[in-house]
Amino acid sequence: MKHWATTKERGNYLGILIVLRAYKYGGHILMRLVLAPVIFYFFLTGTTARKASMAYLRKLHGYSGKASPFQKLPTWRNSLKHFWQFGLASLAKTDAWIGRINKRHVKNCGNTHFRDLEQRPEGGILIGSHLGNLEVARAIASSSYCKRMNVLVFTEHAQAFNRALRELNPNVAVDVIQVTNIDMGLAIMLRERVDQGEFVVIVGDRTSVTDPSQSITHDFLGEPAQFAIGPWVLASILECPVYFLFCVRNANGQGYDLHLDFVTEQLHLPRRSRHQHIEAILAQYIAQLENLCQRYPYQWFNFFDFWQQQTEGTVGNAD
């Protein structure tokens, strides 16, 4: 089966920079006019992404039952709306980094606020997902608070996007760390930063780029899917507070709902029962992800077959 990381990213640094500069000086109206045909083109030509979008929307509909956010089985129109929301999320990233979105546009919906993190001497790990817009959350945190965010990214496209953003706003107080694997060298470096009061941001809804077998299978929207064990193992190595972080556009499209939730003071993974402990915290994570997918159905942006089963070495026991 095709792994998500083998899907070629469409875009490069120069192209992204040109688009961002046009957005900065042309505003929303110009960029939406440009964005509409681009999104429609990707929708027509991106067969894999379009099928993945439809599969996700229909699984969400079936899983939710009477609580489904859709009145009937989703069609290509719902999928096109899903693509359009992805385009709007890309614009929102730029809005956040050039200062057009600030904390006044964000409603805190979780049990923790960024100011709570600011008041604690230690750092922590924030585990997010491809639901909503982590870029908005981290931009707001960086512009309003002093704690540095170290963001782990796994694609060159993400690195190029952030490099282009720095061209527009050199005061971005975020370290974007492009990685292919979470090894001990990286863990030691991140542990030092967390000990200095900084935060690590990582997503939990992808499998490993280099070793997809390092995953654990758990039901998501009613069907088994694979989730990387890396974020949870990293959290245990860092020996720091663990939080879930989701930032989603609200129903009226005028602001954002920030779901920042404290999970545990420290994640312990005893060797003999590591599988069970990872399953327990992963179940919490997936439960929140499912709930938010139901509330914000068009904002989960994994455009590949998320429920595919790897053909080699899938971890059934994380020991």
Rank of each mutant, 00 (worst) to 15 (best):
Q294H: 09
K51V: 08
T48A: 14
V200E: 08
F306N: 09
T7H: 12
W300L: 07
I182H: 06
W84C: 00
A139L: 00
F301R: 00
G132Q: 06
L221A: 11
T264E: 12
K51F: 08
H61M: 01
R138T: 05
G124Q: 12
I125A: 09
R163L: 01
H218S: 13
F42W: 14
L186F: 11
I202Y: 07
P231Q: 10
K107M: 11
L14R: 11
E9N: 11
G110L: 01
K8T: 03
W97L: 03
Q196N: 10
T7Q: 10
G99E: 03
P241T: 11
H157Y: 12
F83L: 06
I101T: 13
A228H: 03
E312I: 01
F220S: 06
N250A: 02
P241F: 07
G132P: 05
P224N: 03
T112M: 11
L44N: 08
I29K: 11
N133M: 04
A160P: 07
K24I: 00
Q276P: 00
T45L: 10
E156N: 10
A187D: 04
C240N: 10
I125E: 10
Y243F: 14
C247H: 11
I39R: 00
K93M: 09
I229T: 14
K93A: 10
L234Y: 05
S208N: 15
V200W: 08
R138I: 07
W76P: 00
K66C: 00
T75D: 13
Y145M: 06
W4Q: 12
L260D: 01
Q226P: 08
V194F: 15
D211Y: 08
L152A: 06
Q159T: 09
H275F: 03
R100P: 10
T210V: 13
L165C: 07
T155Y: 04
Q159C: 12
S143Y: 03
N150C: 03
Q254I: 07
K93C: 09
Y13H: 14
I98C: 01
